[in-house]
Design a protein around this nucleic acid. Sequence first.
DNA 1: CCAAAATACTACTCTCAGTTGTTAGACTTT
DNA 2: AAAGTCTAACAACTGAGAGTAGTATTTTGG
Lengths: 134, 134
Amino acid sequence: MIDKKIGLRIKEIRKGWGLSQIELAERIGISFQQIQKYEKGTTRISVMRLQQISDALGVHITAFFEEGEKTPMVSDFALRYAPSRDSVNLPGVVQPLNKEEITLLKLFRNTRNKKVREGIIKQLQGVVELGNRK
Amino acid sequence: MIDKKIGLRIKEIRKGWGLSQIELAERIGISFQQIQKYEKGTTRISVMRLQQISDALGVHITAFFEEGEKTPMVSDFALRYAPSRDSVNLPGVVQPLNKEEITLLKLFRNTRNKKVREGIIKQLQGVVELGNRK
DNA sequence: CCAAAATACTACTCTCAGTTGTTAGACTTT
DNA sequence: AAAGTCTAACAACTGAGAGTAGTATTTTGG
């Protein structure tokens, strides 16, 4: 019961970060099949394991026990941003990354040249600037 | 480690209610010796069991994870892992976001025009392409 | 459309959560 | 002061299920 809920949360957050079961498993040092069981809720999760998972996902362990949708699922130390786009969203509430954003991030991270990265950001700033000044 | 801390918390709260190990064990339906192990931290506690214990003690399960006052709202995963990010970067591995990446994401999310977003990604793909084919 | 990555499902192994039994201290009560 | 009661600590044993590995199926993206 509770393991089922926790499992879903794990999956949610993992996907939010664009991680595969394999990647998450490697961070923790267990098999990805075991991650599957956690996510499906077929085996009980120990507190220790959940602690490791929390660390690997960059969220506080209590994130798995907070009921309701209005609770931030992903640690927002990073993503505390107000302006929400495609939905109603409370300030400070974080959404996991969508596919497009994950692609963006992976590419950005593979861009070693600092100048190039800064250029991309500059460019986006320009675009947003234009867009807002209607 | 974490089991030890949780165990102490259980003992603390149990005594706070003036309950014996036996009484607590009965409420949960296990042997009091097992409670001992939990309190000593000699066996790993499953989330399910901790949930039962929380219920039996009349506290929310998160009570066991809240550290003193200095509770970090956020796991320090990012702090521990982010610094090394610039040097080591495995392909496809996603980590919590650093400052630069947060900026990127915020801007990206404020870019309403789908075509523009796709353009940015295309552009990055080109850059990465060039960079890798040394 | 095809290869490769990601996820799902199955069968096996071996750890360790949980049980039982014993002991010891800390109190009452007679 | 001995005999009963209550609590907690520790040891030895057992089997459920946590964890692994192998294979099949789905999904991705090129």
